[in-house]
Design a protein around this nucleic acid. Structure first.
Lengths: 198, 198
DNA sequence: TTCCTTGCTGAACTATCGTATAGTAACACC
DNA sequence: GGTGTTACTATACGATAGTTCAGCAAGGAA
């Protein structure tokens, strides 16, 4: 993994941080939080152990950075322009797209959820960021319902929909065969149709 | 936590194993997989470190035992007789009952899912046991649909429903305020009604 | 009571954890 | 080309990880 011959490549802090975050994610995707260690991440990135503390202060700092990075990329994929008649249709397509409905990505989320449930620093970060994700879904739901002349409690429907989507992630990590992309898309629409029509 | 004064209480293997499993679950509920360690579990149970290896061979052995125990109690709670007009109604009430929709219990499940995604031994155990859980839901769904004269693909609906329920667990661990027992019950029925009627 | 099985302890062991820090060297700037 | 900043390496450190094992003692069998 590590490109051995190169001696000392000085990168900008931003580049090196991104590289270390990627290495951390690769470790998490492989072995969950148990593989999120100084030795494993440094080896994966092909750098010395000390560099993590240099850039992130501590492993907790790297963990928060990984969470923020995951969230940023998730939001980018969700909000990326996609073919679809409505915003909610585009959202569903985003959720089952290869960038998001990916085994490694979902495994990292599962790992992070376990840490959020324990780590107060990460929990606070989550509380702030996840609100935006929720708001995006609420808006898409309200828009779709209004377009079809239905009155719904978008907040409530969004909360349940988020559970459904999170559950896809769990299921895909523990028993991948039982939840394919097509299954997930169908399940999304089976859930959404009674609320927003279409 | 440990009842200090008692010197040597010899328990039957079954009793001691159950006690150690309980201690392991308490540790997991508190700090996830990071607190699932020999020192923490032994201290929680008030026994010496060596006892875990004596009864379970290794920490992996204890992990599998904890999973099997969780599954057994889950199934018992799901299949316990409950007031409800139909089997599916009783199932929903079980899923939001205090024994199952409990923060500690769900945190332990979240922890175990993370391990299942990584640990092959645990994954195999999961594969065998979860099939029964799935089958119970499929049966309840098929029965309800038939009673209301509807034709459904019970397997597919069950898979999605399991995702929804797993998602409750995730959400309750990372942001407990957003998913109460009442919310979960309502979300279950909003999901189920279009398929099975009622 | 005596014996024997075995539940249980406690310490030793090696590996690995995260952090701290002194030293090295790459690159921007003058 | 010399100089200063700092990205980066490498090692030491104490804490803690899981496993192994020799020995103690509780409690049923005799």
């Amino acid at each position: 993994m590590a490109e051995a011959p190169r001696r000392k490549a000085r990168l900008s802090p931003a580049d090196r941080r991104a590289l270390l975050e990627d290495a951390a994610r690769a470790c998490m995707a492989r072995g969950g939080i148990r593989d999120f260690t100084v030795d494993k991440v440094a080896a994966e990135a092909g750098v010395s152990r000390g560099l993590i503390a240099h850039h992130f202060g501590s492993m907790d700092g790297l963990l928060v950075a990984v969470y923020a990075r995951m969230y940023r990329e998730w939001i980018a994929a969700v909000e990326a322009p996609r073919p679809g008649p409505t915003r909610i249709a585009a959202l569903v397509e985003a959720l089952v797209s290869p960038e998001i409905f990916d085994h490694d990505v979902l495994k990292i989320w599962l790992t992070l959820w376990g840490e959020i449930a324990t780590n107060p620093v990460l929990r606070e970060e989550h509380r702030k960021l996840y609100a935006n994700y929720r708001a995006a879904i609420v808006a898409a739901l309200a828009e779709a319902a209004a377009a079809n002349g239905r009155a719904i409690d978008a907040e409530t429907v969004a909360a349940a929909f988020i559970c459904l989507v999170d559950g896809f992630g769990v299921q895909r990590c523990v028993e991948p065969a039982l939840m394919t992309e097509a299954d997930a898309r169908a399940a999304c629409w089976a859930f959404l149709r009674p609320h927003v029509g279409g």
